[in-house]
Amino acid sequence: MSGLCSERVAVVTGAGRGLGRAHALALAAEGAKVVVNDLGVGLDGTGGTAGPAQLVVDEIRARGGQAVAHHGDIATAEGAASLIRTAVETWGRLDTLVNNAGFLRDRMLVNLDEDDWDAVVRVHLKGHFLPLKYAAAHWRAEAKAGRVPAARVVNTSSGAGLLGSVGQGNYSAAKAGIVGLTLVAAAETGRYGVLVNAIAPAARTRMTEATFAETMAAPADGFDAMAPENVSPLVVWLGSAASAGVTGRVFEAEGGRITVMEGWRPGPTADKGGRWSPAEAGETALRLLAEATKPEPVYGG
């Protein structure tokens, strides 16, 4: 490996399995010291065991890397604060935060319980906000002390958050919120030496291998396009000092493909210079829609 993250300290949430595990291993392979966070919960967020995080730590150490496990709930203030504190107290610094933790509770909207909405939004959106909040506070203190960091945050959105996904109203809303949070964090924390970006990955994980079984299946031979390890090189680069100048962007990553996603921007417009009547507003809206680019379809639609 090139040592792209040599001497850097990275935190990865939800790193016991799937994409998080792949990111943690890839960061360690490039020289990073890694805090491996995972509650070890089931696919729906229930249960919990320390096993998955410790297994990844053991795997990193067996390959000659450095890692420690963190089993706190990062969607609580105490858990998120202790996550950042673990990195700083163990290695004296924090350079990279990869927010990845999440689970699913899929239902069509009319069948979606309030508890299932709250649980998914909590782990994905609040579970991004709180680690980012405490990491940013640490980096701000460093910058004010004259030690401006080359800090990096990689958030995890989804195609569901960018386009929508039938049966995943809670997940799609949370993942869309992560994009908004990424844009705000990039604007607010740049002055402290922090760059914040997001990825929208597609890979075979516990969350996708059943729902999209045919698409996610590993081939008998050849390139495994849906392997989570395909996404990690971009995460490593975004989490390294080499990504200087890149912030507030969203990248889609799948197989051997990387795409810069372009979000909302003004399209066709009309200005009357005064108040429209409802009929005029409707006629104008239809005319503008006819001139506009058609949106990409919702997943599952």
Results as ranks from 00 to 15, higher is better:
residue 147 R to T: 13
residue 299 Y to H: 12
residue 54 Q to M: 09
residue 223 F to V: 12
residue 163 L to P: 00
residue 91 W to L: 08
residue 286 L to G: 00
residue 174 A to K: 05
residue 218 A to S: 15
residue 234 L to T: 06
residue 21 R to P: 01
residue 138 H to Q: 14
residue 236 V to Y: 07
residue 66 Q to N: 13
residue 250 V to P: 01
residue 18 G to P: 00
residue 116 D to V: 12
residue 1 M to C: 03
residue 215 T to K: 14
residue 196 V to D: 05
residue 222 G to Q: 13
residue 114 E to Q: 12
residue 284 T to A: 15
residue 112 L to M: 11
residue 25 L to M: 13
residue 132 L to R: 01
residue 206 R to M: 13
residue 284 T to I: 13
residue 129 F to Q: 03
residue 115 D to L: 08
residue 264 W to C: 00
residue 8 R to Q: 15
residue 124 H to V: 09
residue 234 L to D: 01
residue 281 A to Q: 11
residue 248 G to P: 00
residue 184 V to Y: 08
residue 195 L to A: 13
residue 266 P to R: 07
residue 67 A to C: 10
residue 165 S to Y: 00
residue 268 P to Y: 04
residue 301 G to P: 07
residue 6 S to N: 14
residue 180 G to W: 02
residue 154 V to M: 10
residue 45 G to I: 05
residue 37 N to F: 02
residue 144 K to R: 15
residue 189 T to D: 13
residue 197 N to I: 12
residue 223 F to R: 11
residue 125 L to F: 07
residue 107 R to T: 06
residue 161 G to A: 13
residue 262 E to R: 15
residue 229 E to G: 14
residue 285 A to V: 14
residue 51 G to T: 14
residue 199 I to T: 05
residue 248 G to F: 05
residue 131 P to M: 06
residue 66 Q to P: 07
residue 160 A to C: 09
residue 198 A to W: 04
residue 22 A to I: 07
residue 3 G to I: 00
residue 210 A to W: 13
residue 59 E to F: 07
residue 62 A to G: 15
residue 173 A to N: 01
residue 237 W to D: 01
residue 72 G to T: 05
residue 277 S to C: 06
residue 177 G to Q: 04
residue 109 L to K: 00
residue 289 L to V: 09
residue 123 V to H: 01
residue 270 A to G: 11
residue 58 D to C: 05
residue 42 G to M: 12
residue 228 P to H: 09
residue 226 M to P: 03
residue 190 G to A: 08
residue 5 C to K: 00
residue 158 S to N: 02
residue 175 K to I: 02
residue 67 A to T: 10
residue 255 G to H: 10
residue 58 D to T: 06
residue 52 P to I: 01
residue 221 D to G: 13
residue 268 P to L: 07
residue 9 V to M: 10
residue 252 E to V: 12
residue 18 G to W: 04
residue 21 R to A: 01
residue 287 R to M: 12
residue 136 A to H: 10
residue 203 A to Q: 07
residue 227 A to V: 02
residue 275 R to I: 10
residue 291 E to P: 01
residue 137 A to V: 14
residue 79 G to M: 11
residue 268 P to R: 09
residue 67 A to R: 00
residue 48 G to P: 03
residue 105 R to G: 00
residue 245 G to M: 12
residue 45 G to R: 07
residue 202 A to G: 15
residue 183 L to T: 09
residue 20 G to L: 04
residue 68 V to T: 12
